[in-house]
Design a protein around this nucleic acid. Structure first.
Lengths: 356, 356
DNA sequence: CTGAAAGCGCTAACAT
DNA sequence: ATGTTAGCGCTTTCAG
């Protein structure tokens, strides 16, 4: 049986209050008793019982995270960031990976069981409105990442602006006829990336050819998949329309599919057509993809930090932190690195407050 | 403030004991009082306080998992399996992703805090001997997956046998000169896959040419990476030795690197050289890799089930469950599917007990 | 069948 | 500075 503070108290001949004080580094204990208690505690191999502590302290020192697992490559990186950040803070993580959207509600309900978690990290999905009331009355801090919700602190990627930078990059490389392979338009990022793309083209008085802009209709991973990229490109190819000299693709993983589809027709990247994509997942480097990097690991770390911050400072108005993705120039766009060095350090963090 | 059983008791005009009984489906309550309590509870939007429950019940209904994050593609799938299995069982998951091996100890120590978790899932790493004593005296059930340890229930992949099947497949396709691209030999799976490979060759009286067998020396992800595959193949290519007609590669992700390296020399897969790899990660399908499938998702599910089982039945001797990976024939080996249909259903589960 | 009371292990307010 | 006591919210005897 594991030792309790009673055991320690008895053996060290002090009261349990004193033991608790020592264990919690309260200053009001003599060095002498402190030493005695500590030595007994370590002899007994004492470990505080987390739940008893949580019950008495009214906080659990654990955070919850709801992450869509269908965003494979994205969430791995984010998760790594979360874990590393947590490790230093002494918080634990209760993870709920959502494979299907209908798991969200169930999870929130279950984990809001009073006291289970001190705060919630909510990733890449529309936050269910059903719960904002509940969340508020339970007073549990929430950070929404990669999605916007006016009631909570948010960390968002500037998708529109990122798409603009990507498109602009292609234009500055001399391309005037550019297509886009997009994910499912029902997803927020896909929508924003498309509008950034189109806006840049029209801003530069370039033609928008709808026949070379295709959005996935796949529901699987919202079209952010290799399959989807492959299929979309095949679709364009089958139309037998004039191919543009460049494509903006809404994710790296799709770009890999795009490149395969192209290769099957003997069309080479970047020689025949240039490609710029989005995300900068690990494979992007291997495939020499020029891409808009989302600092996924950092977003995980930031999310944790924001949440801890929010736990300590409830009551202040929700904030929005936006991240401008960074252009990483590799080979797929056909640019020589030196030409575009100026783009590389474009990474900026804006932080601003929303009026309530 | 959240409602407690006291609130319910007061409003339903019963004692807290009765409320508790109703909530726990104890049969010894009249339908009438039961209904009354339930209606009050739902009106108050009552949720049991998880920690109070855990404290009183002496179990937490949460499981811990220690997973190496550096096995990217592997752990995602496993995690999905775990989550889905957990969802049905009403257990929560405290996840600890290990980015560096030295985090393991810290995590175990912290989470063994009595009561934190009811059981532990330990993945793909050598279980630290320092803790087997602790684990045993704390009586916390442990399942080790993808690694063997005599003290615990284990779920292992038959790497040696898997490599044999892969190699045999290549041989049966008519190849007599086969090379291998391996991960870092310090890792158990790499070691086993190599020995399975060699054994099959010698068993078939085929020559083992050391110059076309290369093990990665990378410590990063133990050499199970695209980079490592790419580099290893480049190394062989640079030796200017006679290329074999086929390669067995120790993981899909390496195979992708291998294929790129080959492609850079104009060598095509499977036309010029056949490739069979290991894992069957999501990308394997996209790259048309013939590979030995490890049922990663299923392993996650099984792990959870085994753990729950072990929690319910302590005391029985540890078991070993082995999984024979399944040959998935795609294009990279150059076989027509029909030729080798017989291999496809090779998947078998062996379960056996170890004598203590 | 149901109410009252005794913990579960710990923290924190209150005495001393 | 240290011991004592009252909860935290729930489960589980133990009476009745």
């Amino acid at each position: 049986m594991a030792a309790t503070i009673y055991d320690i108290a008895r053996e060290a001949k002090v009261g349990i209050g004193t033991v608790s004080r020592v264990l919690n580094n309260s200053p009001k204990v003599t060095q002498q008793t402190r030493d005695r208690v500590i030595s007994v505690a370590s002899r007994l191999n004492y470990q505080p019982h987390a739940f008893a502590q949580a019950l008495a302290r009214k906080r659990s020192n654990t955070l919850g995270a709801i992450i869509p697992f269908f965003t494979n490559y994205f969430f791995i990186e984010v998760l790594k960031g979360i874990q590393d950040a947590l490790l230093n803070l002494g918080y634990d993580l209760i993870l709920h990976g959502v494979n299907h959207r209908d798991q969200i509600n169930e999870y929130i309900r279950k984990n809001l069981k009073k006291g289970r978690i001190d705060g919630l990290l909510f990733f890449s999905m529309p936050f269910p409105d059903t719960f904002v009331e509940v969340i508020k009355q339970e007073e549990i801090p929430v950070i929404v990442i990669d999605y916007f919700h006016p009631s909570f602190d948010c960390i968002c990627v500037k998708n529109t602006e990122g798409a603009m930078v990507a498109t602009q990059h292609l234009i500055s490389l001399g391309h005037t006829d550019i297509g886009m392979i997009n994910a499912n338009i029902t997803s927020e990022p896909a929508k924003d990336r498309l509008s950034g793309f189109k806006e840049t083209l029209s801003h530069q008085n370039l033609q928008i050819r709808d026949e070379i802009i295709v959005s996935s209709i796949s529901r699987k991973q919202d079209g952010f998949s290799r399959d989807s990229g492959y299929t979309s490109m095949k679709e364009i190819l089958s139309k037998k329309v004039k191919l543009p000299t460049a494509f903006f693709v809404s994710s790296d993983i799709q770009a890999i599919g795009v490149i395969s589809a192209l290769a099957e027709e003997g069309i080479r990247v970047p020689d025949d057509v240039a490609v710029v994509s989005f995300d900068d997942i690990e494979l992007a480097r291997h495939f020499e993809l020029t891409t808009m990097r989302q600092p996924m690991y950092d977003m995980g770390v930031m999310a944790v930090e924001k949440l801890i911050d929010r736990i300590k400072n409830p009551g202040t108005p929700p904030t929005l932190t936006t991240i401008l993705p960074k252009l990483i120039v590799r080979k797929s766009c056909g640019a020589r690195k030196s030409e575009h060095a100026e783009f590389i350090d474009h990474n900026t963090l804006y932080s601003s407050e929303i009026e309530k």
